[in-house]
């Protein structure tokens, strides 16, 4: 089973890289023009750059060359800066990891209490109000909330200092990071989905026959409802919402000037710096895949039915 999963992962990453590469090559602009800045980007000049760098002229040639590097564990170097992509990702990656996992935590801290409360009191007015609030919050666009928050907390009230990516480490550096994390956690658009799914699943499980048995037996209901009513839907939601959180991270990193992969990939897209884009796309895809593998592992561990398959 593990070998099959690994093969699937490799296939997935290959597919992702191919699609991203094709899109990059279909979009206008030549990554190597950046090296000709200030000069007239004539056809001859570009051809000479390609030749000087030993870059294949066809797109599939370039893809195969990139793939060959990947096979040797080399993510290539940035066309713009000449710095190895792997090192750049290793430098910026933890910042993005911190941002995405932190905001996921914020999302769960918002969604889970509302879901648990409204699953236990389905008809209450407060539960309905909370759910409505959650839906409204989820509809807020993340970039808008980001700018509003920056305006209010940084410029108007000065509660948080302005974060600048290049500054020397400040004394309470971790605190500055809270603002983008909260913004992304609130407005990544998944709060309502997580609330709805968890509430629905827990509500469904609470009407299962075996929960009635647990009550008749005098056993704590949560002990019997935990696995199917909480652990599984939570795992499902975390695994399936990670792509959305990563997508939101790209925007939040722009808005807050957060030195992570999102800002890096944005910059690289401006420059058509395809080794950087490809490297980050690969890492993001691997991250998403890792989450769904983790889900599969938890499902297999929890559910005797899938474990015996």
């Amino acid at each position: 089973m593990a070998a099959r999963e690994l093969a699937l992962t490799a296939l997935l990453l290959l597919g992702v890289s191919l699609v991203v590469f094709v899109i990059l090559n279909l979009s206008p602009g030549d990554p190597f023009s950046v090296l000709l800045e200030g000069q007239a980007p004539g056809h001859a000049a570009r051809a000479s750059v390609h030749e000087a760098l030993g870059v294949p002229t066809t797109w599939y040639g370039r893809y195969l060359a990139w793939l060959g590097n990947i096979a040797r564990g080399n993510l290539g170097t940035s066309i713009r800066t000449g710095v190895p992509v792997a090192g750049e990702i290793a430098r910026a990656g933890p910042n993005t990891l911190y941002l995405t996992l932190g905001s996921l935590l914020v999302t769960l801290l918002l969604a889970v209490p509302v879901a648990l409360y409204s699953a236990s009191r389905a008809a209450g007015a407060l539960a309905r109000g909370l759910r409505l609030a959650v839906y409204l919050v989820s509809a807020v666009p993340v970039f808008w909330l980001g700018y509003v928050v920056i305006y209010l907390f940084i410029h108007r009230f000065g509660v948080f200092p302005l974060l600048s990516g290049s500054a020397e480490p400040a004394r309470h550096g971790w605190l500055y990071g809270l603002l983008p994390i909260v913004v992304l956690g609130v407005a990544n658009g998944t709060v309502s989905e997580v609330t709805r799914h968890l509430r629905g699943e827990l509500g469904r499980v609470l009407t299962e026959d075996y929960i009635r048995t647990a009550r008749a037996k005098g056993a704590p209901v949560w002990r019997h409802a935990f696995k199917e009513g909480f652990l599984l839907p939570m795992t499902e939601m975390i695994a399936s919402k990670i792509p959305f959180v990563i997508g939101g991270a790209i925007i939040v990193e722009q808005v807050f000037n957060w030195p992570g992969l999102g800002r890096m990939v944005w910059q690289a897209a401006q420059d058509r710096d395809f080794p950087v884009i490809m490297g980050i796309a690969l890492v993001a895809a691997a991250f998403v895949r890792l989450a769904s593998l983790l889900r599969a592992v938890i499902y297999a561990g929890v559910n005797p039915r899938t474990a015996t398959d």
Binding site: E208, D209, Y210, T213, A214, K217, H224, E228, N303, R305
Partner: peptide, 17 residues
Amino acid sequence: KQIAMIFQNPKSSLNPF
């Protein structure tokens, strides 16, 4: 403890996990 109960559909009445 003092009153115990068994149900129809024993399969779904036991916790599958």
